[in-house]
């Protein structure tokens, strides 16, 4: 059994994954990020390279946050990095097939669990109408909001079913649902059920379900626990959870390369009985690879203690 599964089962204390994704891994190889984000073979090549260099315990197929939004018609610009230009229009470009291709390749090539990142229906819905408009509608027009979330959910269920056929694990990222943006009450009202539906589908196939929410999550920890996911990737790992936590090292710390701070944060994180030691979000593209290697080394040293 792999390390991630053993930590989920509380049979082992620690697994490690500095969240190195397409942009950073492409940067390591001097590959063009836009090409990597649009081509499954290149995406797999970049992510495999990251894995070989750092030897972490899982691989995450994540190119950028807008794959599904673009497939649903949101315009996305690829310069210098994928940028969402506006709400849904009729300019649909479907890159989901490329993500699936990358996941298929990686599943054959690496011997750690492969996860694919998909967007939470709440965050995806916000991209479809524009985040500001969406957030206002949460208070001003509940019906419109629910309809948009349902559109996003329907799309994600179909996408998820295609991914689950490959036997890959899933990470659902729902950054717009964090308590840095919306109240716990609105999370419960609009974000919870769609997430729960996706997680149930993943669990039915006996695959691993992770949830990633950036920003403040302290007020919604009890609700996040109710989702029944296997892993909760959050910025602040100090609150107690039933779900296995993932995190512990701030993205800024790993980017800065401050050895003392990296060591301090890892030491603090290892107070947890069981943990996937990770960065709080994906590492910035230009992060020096020696900083990530340092994180792997320190984590290795502590776990051998």
């Amino acid at each position: 059994m792999n390390k991630i599964s053993r930590v989920i089962r509380r049979e082992e204390k620690l697994a490690v994954f500095p969240i190195a994704c397409a942009d950073h891994c492409a940067h390591l190889l001097n590959m063009n990020y836009s090409e990597v984000a649009s081509d499954g073979t290149k995406l797999a090549r970049a992510l495999e390279h990251g894995y070989r260099i750092y030897q972490y315990d899982m691989v995450l197929v994540f190119s950028d946050p807008y794959v599904e939004a673009q497939a649903l018609g949101c315009p996305v610009k690829f310069s210098p990095s994928p940028t969402l230009l506006g709400p849904r229009s009729n300019q649909s470009i479907d890159r989901t097939e490329e993500i699936i291709k990358a996941a298929e390749i990686l599943k054959r090539k690496v011997d750690v669990p492969v996860f694919v990142s998909i967007k939470g229906p709440f965050s995806l819905a916000s991209f479809l109408v524009g985040i500001e408009e969406f957030l206002k509608n949460l208070l001003a027009n509940e019906e419109t909001t629910s309809n948009t979330i349902n559109t996003a959910l329907e799309f994600q269920i179909k996408y998820l079913e295609r991914l689950l056929k490959l036997g890959v694990n899933i990470f659902i990222g729902d950054p717009v649902a964090s308590s840095s943006v919306i109240s716990p009450k609105l999370f419960e009202r609009f974000a919870f059920e769609p997430l729960l539906k996706l997680i149930k589908k993943i669990k039915e196939k006996e695959l691993i379900a992770g949830v990633h929410v950036c920003g403040d999550t302290k007020p919604i920890i009890p609700i996040l626990d109710e989702l029944g996911a296997d892993i909760l990737s959050i910025e602040d790992i100090t609150p107690k959870t039933r779900t296995l936590k993932m995190g512990g090292v701030s993205t800024e710390t790993i980017f800065s390369g401050n050895q003392t701070k990296i060591e301090e944060e890892i030491k603090q994180a290892l107070i947890e009985s069981y943990l996937i030691l990770a960065t709080s979000c994906d590492v910035p593209m230009e992060t020096d690879s020696k900083n990530i290697k340092l994180m792997m080394e320190i984590a290795g040293a502590y776990s051998n203690d």
């Binding site: 949460l138 109240s183 007020p219």
Partner: peptide, 14 residues
């Protein structure tokens, strides 16, 4: 003090 969140601030700004 986390009584209002971004949607409330956006609506109040309007």
């Amino acid at each position: 003090c986390k009584e209002y969140f971004v949607p409330e601030v956006l609506m109040a700004s309007e």
